[in-house]
Amino acid sequence: MLDHLTFDQLSEEQKYDHFMDRINRDEKIEADDWMPDDYRIALIRLISMHGISEIMGALPEKEWVPKAPTLHRKLAIMAKVQDEMGHGQLLLRVAEDLMKPLGKNRDNIMSDLFTKRLKFHNVFHMASPTWGDAAIIAWLVDGAAIMSQTMMLDTSYGPYGRALKRICQEESFHAKHGESLVLSLAEGTDRQKQMLQDALNRWWDALLMFFGPKSKQETGHTNVDKNIKYKLRTKTNEQLRQEFFTKYIPKIELIGLKVPDKTVRFDEESNTWHYQDPDWNEFKQIVSGNGPKSDDRIRLRQSSYENTEWVREALGHVKTAVV
């Protein structure tokens, strides 16, 4: 054990060792604790992208909020998109506390989004032209998100873990909402079924991309490994993608939909799903902000932010609390 009186006098190297000891003992790191820059940067990168993805993720579904077909659906999708904004709130708070020592706050997160320095998940760059898309997003995009979020529940960073716990509790409602939307269309008219199948076809590649490329062998990408070393996450992209197939492909087929990949099959021997890889160059293009709806969505977010600048400016100046 460390003599507490000397912590501040430790060398950077000793602090780092002490920090890694804590990680290896599964202790939780808190916002004000000493942490290596490498860890802080990895967290900021992961959590600000996660947070802003929730905020940007509200937009493709928002399209369907006023248009939702019944009173019940109008209420439910409003609640669901509201939750996404709420998840963005939780995650951005976590990211903002990490960025504070670097002199940054929410305004910087927004301007980084507008200049495309801050990236968001590939799925939220895609168009959602029909109600069928709203259903597929709620069922499968959320299903994929639930898997990756659940995997990180035990993350070494305490505030992130607490945010994820709140998020995962609400996601169980989202999962039901998504299933309910999809089942209604799958039970419906030929037109409704077709609408659902078309949406699945549109979303399949984006869903595979959602988990990210395989691993460093293929890409030279090291973020995932770093995230595992720091116990921010416990599974690789490919492990999650395989779990996704196992959970959803049988259900997709059960309700009469076709997976739009003729090569997809489960190999009993290797206990893995074989599938057609999506175009990973396209993935890079999309997450760099060059997807089909990237510019529209960023513009929508930016113009609404600028339109309400006067409000933040005004309330920043309310000095005495009005009773």
Partner: peptide, 23 residues
């Protein structure tokens, strides 16, 4: 529960209610 950003405490309390106690 959690933290939030608000310009003052009146606003903070009214925002806290729906941000953290919707359910």
């Amino acid at each position: 529960q959690f933290s939030l950003l608000a310009p003052n405490e009146e606003m903070a309390i009214v925002l806290a209610k729906e941000n953290f106690f919707r359910r």
